[in-house]
Amino acid sequence: MLLETNDLTIGYRTASGALRAVEGVNLAIPEGEIVGLVGESGCGKTTLARSLIGVMAGNASIERGEIRFQGRDLVSSGARYWKDRRWRDIAYIPQSAMNSLDPVYRVGDQLLEVLIRRGGMDRAKAKRRAAELFELVGIEANRLRDFPHEFSGGMRQRAAIALALALDPKLVIADEPVTALDVIVQRQILDTLDDLQKRLGISVLLVTHDISVVAYVCDRVAVMYAGKLVEEGSVDTVLGSPVHPYSMGLMNAFPDLGRASRTLVPIEGAPPDLHDPPAGCRFAPRCPFVVDACSEPPAIESVDETHRAACWRIGEAEALRKDASEVTTWQT
């Protein structure tokens, strides 16, 4: 594994009390794969993604757990070691590329800054590398002199990818890289990302709320709900035959252009307030398949060698899947 988290738990101090946005998460990112981290607003996916580069909000802290990068735990290795991994080994593309570029500096200068200050290159070498990076992501090198506002949304996202790739990282974390983009631009960016991942052999953690994006480019997927990892496995198995009722619900609620006649199945209710989460399974209040056991939190367990889920009824998944596709099942 290139990166592995172990029982990772992240808390926030807020005006209305403490809460745990991420709890006991074991996430694995293999070498040379694109892993999708999927879930809805507030499920903790961005908190988890940002914790991997050691840059978190001021009121957030890692309460326990490990983040092992190439076998070494970053949390206990000290801020200095972690900082050295940033850009060089693990790069982060924040949500909305607009925010990752400084509006008052030319895009090229921002690239040079990373290459020179973090990469230790001299100016001439950095300039050659900047042009090379722009070409890599599909922008003409003469646009390096432009300011961010002169770029379209898609180009800004490409520039953000170039920035992330500047120092040849092994892992790129992209937080909602295509969310604000039009569908054609979205497709072009995803194709670029996919192509770069293959050519450079890097790993990518793609954080998104959109399962169709996961289906399109990811090899593996991890599904989060209310701070917990509920299901993880290859995209084909998790999206094709989900085992956790929440994953089933997500699939059935998603409009599919390819399958017109299917009625969408909403998941009734709303995610729990993390200030006071349910004692047992966090999905239980919305889950139509609740049994007595669900008052205890289920551990994440293997379904098969590459597929894991946190549900007491893993063994009955096939029957549950059938019921989960009916709207009436969810209306209790």
Binding site: V183, A215, V235
Partner: peptide
């Protein structure tokens, strides 16, 4: 250009 939730697309 529209992606679908089908991994086999």
């Amino acid at each position: 250009a529209v992606p679908t939730p089908d991994p086999q697309q």
